[in-house]
Computed example of a mutant assay.
Amino acid sequence: MNSAKTRIAIVRLSALGDIVNTAVALQIIHKHYPNARIDWYVEEAFAPILEGHPLLHEVIRVPIKRIKKTKSFQLLRESIRHLRSRECYDHIIDAQGLLKSAIVASLIRGKVHGFDRNSIREKLAASFYDTTSDVPYETNVIKRNVMVITEALHIPYDEQDILHKAPLFPQQERPSVLKEGKNIACVIGASWPSKCYPKEHFATLCSQLPYPCYLIWGSDAEKLDAQWICEHASNAIIAPKMSLRELVNFISHCDLIIGNDTGPTHMGWAMNRPSITLFGPTNERMIYPTPINSAIKSPSEVNILKINRHDFSIREIDPDSVFQKAKELLA
């Protein structure tokens, strides 16, 4: 396929885990459009994870959160002007399906493709698209992201493209902080308290594991939890504060990632590293299971269309069940 002049825009603004789980599409696009110029529109806080990616032509920062926080009309006006000034694209794909992403996509010049009204939470977003895909919201998120992009580009969907992906982000040298031998990363935070595995359970789990357990944290509160875990598990280590790029590289050199349903845990799958994702109020729809990437779900029922953020059933996952799965993957 001659794709020398094909210009493609992907709009996936946030969050970190969703960006990580969408990046697999870059390899699929490149396979069918090897000479295409692909731009990615993203919330500015998450831009560093994509900047410098070998399959991207440009990463465009969109300051939506800053506009909301500052209520700056000037910043809003400048952002709109910048979006409208971009070159016209052959394909614009809203891979997020929210009103904010649909508005951003509609401000860029070119025809916009997205999910149809029956496939998204914010149905009004579908009215901003020229063409749409019917991919049920309950579909596995990685498949869903790939399907809307491949359909927009008239690429055949092939599950093997996901199963046999290369690592999704560039890998750098092994971080010097990691010890010789095997190392485990434990992602102890998440966006909601109900998604967090208790620090007491993490301490028990770390004490059982035979290798250093680096505790990944992203806020002062999470660092305090990490300190508590270290006081109760001798092989637990507080990981250093890291940029997004440093975090991806750190994860890529660990032998196992154990964590909550959040972006840093999903990086394990993205970098083809063994991982265990712990679920309470959400479920296995959020990961792509493989022989080395598994999930442990609490006993609660999940309605993916109406998530119960007060479901703290993740506390019911026995640390021993996580340990047994970790033993299998470490073997």
Score class of each variant (00 low, 15 high):
residue 56 L to C: 06
residue 232 H to W: 10
residue 271 M to V: 10
residue 100 K to L: 09
residue 217 W to G: 00
residue 325 K to F: 00
residue 236 A to F: 11
residue 326 A to G: 04
residue 183 N to K: 14
residue 255 D to V: 00
residue 57 H to V: 02
residue 13 L to D: 01
residue 187 V to R: 14
residue 277 T to G: 07
residue 226 A to Q: 08
residue 8 I to E: 06
residue 101 S to W: 13
residue 93 I to R: 05
residue 80 I to F: 06
residue 298 S to Q: 11
residue 70 T to G: 00
residue 182 K to H: 10
residue 200 E to G: 06
residue 226 A to T: 07
residue 179 K to R: 15
residue 196 C to M: 12
residue 245 R to E: 12
residue 327 K to G: 01
residue 229 I to D: 09
residue 15 A to Q: 13
residue 13 L to I: 05
residue 56 L to V: 09
residue 122 E to R: 02
residue 290 T to G: 09
residue 222 E to G: 04
residue 188 I to P: 10
residue 100 K to M: 07
residue 62 V to K: 10
residue 169 F to V: 10
residue 253 H to A: 09
residue 3 S to K: 09
residue 254 C to T: 15
residue 98 L to E: 02
residue 191 S to R: 15
residue 231 E to S: 13
residue 123 K to V: 05
residue 101 S to N: 12
residue 108 I to M: 10
residue 11 V to N: 03
residue 288 Y to W: 15
residue 99 L to H: 05
residue 188 I to A: 07
residue 61 R to H: 02
residue 30 H to C: 11
residue 179 K to F: 14
residue 224 L to C: 06
residue 265 T to Q: 14
residue 78 E to N: 08
residue 22 T to L: 12
residue 318 D to F: 04
residue 102 A to R: 04
residue 297 K to A: 11
residue 139 T to F: 05
residue 138 E to Y: 12
residue 145 N to K: 08
residue 101 S to P: 14
residue 233 A to D: 08
residue 230 C to S: 10
residue 44 E to T: 15
residue 197 Y to T: 08
residue 84 R to E: 11
residue 145 N to H: 14
residue 253 H to K: 09
residue 201 H to W: 03
residue 115 F to A: 00
residue 83 L to A: 08
residue 263 G to P: 06
residue 85 S to P: 01
residue 116 D to M: 00
residue 102 A to F: 13
residue 2 N to E: 12
residue 118 N to H: 06
residue 294 S to R: 15
residue 168 L to W: 07
residue 100 K to N: 07
residue 82 H to N: 10
residue 147 M to T: 11
residue 149 I to V: 15
residue 8 I to P: 03
residue 43 E to S: 07
residue 264 P to C: 05
residue 51 E to N: 09
residue 97 G to S: 06
residue 223 K to E: 13
residue 231 E to N: 14
residue 204 T to I: 06
residue 89 Y to C: 04
residue 167 P to E: 10
residue 293 N to P: 02
residue 134 D to F: 08
residue 148 V to S: 07
residue 255 D to P: 04
residue 325 K to T: 03
residue 224 L to G: 01
residue 155 I to N: 09
residue 145 N to Y: 13
residue 206 C to A: 14
residue 251 I to S: 00
residue 16 L to M: 15
residue 81 R to D: 08
residue 42 V to C: 04
